[in-house]
Amino acid sequence: MPRLTIGIVIHDFNLGGSERIAIRLANYWREQGHNIIIFCGQKNGQMRDLLSKDITVIPASPIIIRGKNSVRALAHAARKYFSSHLVDFCYIPGNYHWQVSHQLQKIAPTSRPIIVSQISSLIYKPKRKLICQKIFNIRMKYLLKKSDIVVAMDPLTAKQSNSILKRDDTLTIPLPALPMRPSVPTITHAHTPYSVLAAGRLTEQKGFDTLINAFRLVVDTHPEAKLTICGEGEDRPALEAQIKSLHLENNIHIQGYVADITPYLRENSLFVLSSRREGYGAVLLEALDAGCRVVTTDCTPAIRDIFMNTPAGSVVPVDNVSALSTAIIKELSTFSSERTSHSAQMDRYRINVGGDLYLDAVRSIQKSMQ
């Protein structure tokens, strides 16, 4: 296959699920011999070291700091750059960056790359007001109407996308969140009984306040239970105060940001996703790939997609302290040191599978243009 030149646009390398997936795809495509250019507002951030060192990173000049209207500025800067630096296609990783897709559509046809836009979070969010949903749908149609390829991560979102965009070709490409091989060997591990792991940005979206309240009930049943939360964010002071107020300082530890949660998945007997809403929940896939039992809220349509062939735990309603604590207690009470391999069911989420599906879609467009 001919080598491609691929552009990727991200605001920066700060923590974010869409940015992490973009970095993984960039590294994979580079390993396959393609030329990768990442255009960004600035090249700083916690995840910068995750990017392969032989990938070209072009920051905007002047740099663009994340803030109000900064995505619009990034979009205009990306349009200017890719108008004169030609690439075969541009990958736009998620809803936050959709303004970039819109600006790239304005590049002259002789220079315009194939535009690949990903839907990274829910189209229909719970509790969103009807008028707000109508505005969202109009905005989505406006920003993505001329994207050559629109990608959803599950069939329901693809169906919703087709309805809003008045098209019938939204692709479903499962989130390429996993390495080419299982992250943990399929053998017995000496993980600790009554140990629970959670991970994510410390924000309202992730529902850690609900998890901490639920864990108070868990500790009442299992005083030896321990919860480690891997993540950093603006809600950390409030969450630490909540832990103190519930007298859980000896049971809950906020670890802070970690680049790789694999060692933590090996050490803990249960993984919990307490989110109020998710696009797909990459960390849930990582936990299943590691053979963990899981408890998750019903925070995304992808939950049914993931668990359809992988019954590896419990699904509970969002923001339900009682249901969440009951599920955690149930899983801890049936602890087994034997890991269960879900590698076969997880194969569709591996980086090589998703990465190749993106390339196949682009080559199909290129062929149709010849």
Rank of each mutant, 00 (worst) to 15 (best):
S274P: 06
Q205M: 12
D220Y: 12
S101N: 09
V272C: 06
T221E: 05
L239H: 03
V353T: 09
V71F: 05
T228F: 13
H97C: 03
R72K: 12
Q99M: 15
P263M: 02
L359D: 02
K106D: 12
I229V: 15
L324C: 06
R112D: 03
Y358D: 04
I58M: 10
N309I: 10
P182V: 11
V218W: 08
G279Q: 03
T5M: 07
K206G: 05
R304E: 01
N320F: 09
N213D: 00
H11Q: 01
H191S: 12
A361R: 04
K330R: 08
M180S: 14
V57K: 06
S70G: 04
F89N: 01
Y124L: 03
C230I: 11
E267I: 08
I37N: 02
A190F: 06
T310L: 06
P93Q: 06
A327D: 00
R72M: 09
S121T: 11
H253S: 14
R266A: 07
F208G: 02
A344N: 13
A75G: 08
G94D: 04
K141Y: 15
I6K: 02
I107K: 01
L332I: 12
I254Y: 07
R293P: 00
L202D: 05
A152G: 13
E267T: 13
L246R: 00
D319L: 09
T192Y: 06
Y142W: 10
M140I: 05
A361S: 13
K125V: 09
I114A: 12
G17Q: 12
S84D: 10
S147R: 01
F82G: 02
Q99K: 13
T326R: 05
I254L: 14
A287I: 10
R24D: 11
K134W: 14
A282I: 04
S275A: 11
V316L: 12
I149E: 01
K53W: 03
I36L: 10
K106N: 15
N251T: 09
Q105L: 07
V57T: 07
D347Y: 11
A78R: 02
L15W: 00
A22N: 09
Q99L: 15
T262K: 10
E31N: 15
E31S: 15
L227I: 12
A238W: 05
A282F: 03
P59K: 00
I123G: 02
I55M: 02
R216V: 14
T297K: 05
G279E: 04
K146V: 08
Y28S: 04
R350T: 11
S117W: 07
R79K: 11
R339P: 04
I36W: 04
T188K: 14
D148W: 05
